[in-house]
Design a protein around this nucleic acid. Structure first.
Lengths: 99, 99
DNA sequence: AATAATTATGCAAATATATAAATATATTCT
DNA sequence: AGAATATATTTATATATTTGCATAATTATT
């Protein structure tokens, strides 16, 4: 029962992290970023067939809440998981929604 | 990359499940429901020191989205995890917010 | 320096969510 | 049936989120 030792601010932070993930498109984004993969904004916006600005928005939210990290290389910005264990969350939820 | 095989409705369902969890009080509730524990509404509302109606509301959301299950026994309703692997999500997020 | 390519931001309208108070429903006990 | 206990629902207000468009900012190329 580790979470109960968390102070309210840590609870809040955990909630914000999950809230960032809890969106269909953002789950889809994370689905493409397993195994340490790094993708650019354009690659993601083409993969998922969503607007560029919308894509950037979603990536910004995921980065802001500590789910993703980014690294600029020339014209491109690569996004990737900050903690690779975060893939487990997507795995777990997708398994639980299969039944 | 299992999640990418999910249809949009499944993605939506996964997002709803995570959205249900992504709230400070609801994370705290789940923190008390690990290891197959079952708790009543009153127990939770006293443990967390929140309004009865608010507690019931949060539990209703968790149940509606498939995170919890409930079982009435007399005057009491016991709530517990539907898939015990869901504890991993809380564990994972709390670990990731520690650093 | 002008253009193209990539990414990020500001804005606004529609939609969704949170909270608490009041009330309703369900069950047990006398 | 009536009172007490436990849980659920309704309602209203406040707040937050999503989305796409328009635009700005950054970097590379010619």
């Amino acid at each position: 029962m580790k979470i109960n030792e968390l102070e309210p601010e840590k609870l809040e932070q955990a909630a914000n992290m999950l809230k960032a993930i809890a969106h269909p498109m953002r789950i889809a984004i994370l689905g493409h970023l397993d195994d340490g993969k790094k993708l650019t904004v354009t690659e993601i916006h083409e993969l998922l067939n969503i607007e560029q600005s919308t894509t950037s928005h979603h990536l910004g939210i995921l980065k802001d809440k500590g789910v993703l990290q980014s690294k600029r290389e020339g014209k491109n910005t690569y996004y990737f998981l900050k903690h690779c264990s975060l893939s487990n969350i997507v795995d777990c939820v997708s398994k639980c929604t299969m039944g």
